[in-house]
Amino acid sequence: MATESNEEKGRYLRYLEVITGSLDDKRRYREYKARVRRLPENWRTAVEALERYLMHFGPMDGAGWISMYEDLADLVERSVADGTPVRDVFGEDPVEFVEAFMANYPAGRYRARERRRFTDAVRRAAGEAPGTEDEAG
């Protein structure tokens, strides 16, 4: 009986995850959000702004998205503990920071590769030589 019950529960959870997405990722995201709520106000403001940017321009599904958020929380928590100012982490151009940060994750590498392909295609169409990886970002 217990096997049948566990098997049915497992089947139900697999079906639920098909509909809602990974329950483990949802748990990890809630834990991440709790970490953000514990940050000092200035850091929380910066992280929430970065989250908003990622909602529009970053990966929200697929491999690595939750790891990216957890790594962000790690970085910010260490910075708070070390007394590092917000500007020292995010720099003068926060968009440059977030784009470099995203480039370390699968979706960010995909975006960089597609930007490079697009730039090279336009260069070829214009009769120019394709650029280097560094030029197209």
Results as ranks from 00 to 15, higher is better:
2 A>G: 15
4 E>T: 04
5 S>A: 15
5 S>V: 06
6 N>W: 08
6 N>I: 13
6 N>C: 12
6 N>M: 11
7 E>F: 10
7 E>L: 13
11 R>K: 15
12 Y>L: 15
12 Y>N: 08
12 Y>A: 13
12 Y>W: 12
13 L>E: 14
13 L>C: 08
14 R>L: 14
16 L>I: 12
17 E>C: 03
21 G>T: 10
22 S>E: 10
23 L>Y: 04
24 D>Q: 10
25 D>S: 09
25 D>Q: 07
26 K>E: 09
27 R>V: 10
28 R>C: 00
28 R>W: 05
28 R>S: 02
30 R>P: 01
30 R>N: 12
30 R>C: 06
30 R>M: 12
30 R>A: 15
31 E>Y: 07
32 Y>F: 12
33 K>N: 09
34 A>L: 06
36 V>T: 01
36 V>S: 01
38 R>Y: 06
38 R>Q: 12
40 P>D: 04
40 P>V: 03
44 R>S: 10
44 R>G: 05
45 T>M: 11
45 T>Y: 15
47 V>A: 00
47 V>I: 08
48 E>F: 01
49 A>V: 09
50 L>C: 05
51 E>F: 05
51 E>Y: 04
52 R>A: 05
53 Y>A: 07
54 L>I: 12
56 H>Q: 13
57 F>Q: 11
60 M>R: 15
60 M>F: 13
61 D>L: 12
63 A>Q: 07
63 A>L: 11
65 W>Q: 08
69 Y>V: 04
70 E>F: 00
71 D>Y: 02
73 A>P: 02
73 A>F: 04
77 E>H: 00
77 E>W: 00
79 S>W: 01
79 S>D: 04
81 A>K: 02
84 T>L: 07
87 R>W: 07
87 R>L: 12
89 V>A: 03
89 V>R: 00
89 V>K: 03
90 F>P: 02
90 F>Q: 09
91 G>Q: 02
92 E>I: 06
93 D>F: 05
93 D>W: 00
94 P>K: 02
94 P>V: 15
94 P>W: 04
95 V>C: 03
95 V>L: 08
96 E>Q: 14
97 F>N: 02
97 F>D: 05
99 E>N: 09
99 E>W: 08
100 A>Q: 12
100 A>L: 07
102 M>F: 08
103 A>N: 09
104 N>W: 13
104 N>F: 10
107 A>E: 10
107 A>Q: 11
110 Y>T: 14
111 R>H: 09
111 R>S: 05
112 A>S: 11
114 E>G: 00
115 R>Y: 00
115 R>E: 01
118 F>D: 14
119 T>F: 11
121 A>R: 09
122 V>L: 15
122 V>Q: 08
122 V>G: 06
123 R>H: 03
123 R>E: 13
123 R>Q: 13
125 A>D: 12
126 A>G: 06
127 G>K: 00
128 E>K: 06
130 P>D: 14
130 P>L: 15
132 T>M: 09
132 T>A: 13
133 E>C: 04
134 D>N: 08
137 G>N: 03
137 G>E: 03
